[in-house]
């Protein structure tokens, strides 16, 4: 008596069903979007950290003070380029 209601509740059909692959495709797309949205801030932060850090080290070595902000901006631009390349393709 309980069985039919329960199997109806699970929205996933049998593995043999063709709708399973459709569900898999939707899941994969959703997963890609979620992964991208969560990893964008860390890409931008790491771009700024790598090239800002490089600029900071060069500043200490050469005794200048302009390379740190320039490095941060360059890293920001590179990280944005990477993000656009990874997630911005129209497939």
């Amino acid at each position: 008596m309980v069985r039919p209601a329960m199997s109806e509740e699970g929205h996933r059909p049998d593995p043999q069903d063709s709708e399973e692959s459709e569900q898999d495709r939707i899941d994969a797309e959703h997963r890609g979007f979620a992964n991208a949205a969560w990893s964008i801030p860390s890409y931008i932060l790491s771009g700024m950290a790598v090239y800002g850090g490089l600029g900071w080290l060069l500043d200490r070595w050469l005794g200048t003070s302009a390379l740190f902000p320039i490095g941060i901006l360059v890293g920001l631009a590179l990280a944005l380029y990477l993000v656009f390349h990874r997630y911005g393709r129209t497939s």
Partner: peptide, 27 residues
Amino acid sequence: PPGLPKPLYVILAPIELLSNLILRPFT
């Protein structure tokens, strides 16, 4: 990541490495 011109990998690989290996557990 596939599909980039070769010289850019030298510049972009450190960003990927830092982002995936250090900033991920941090954030």
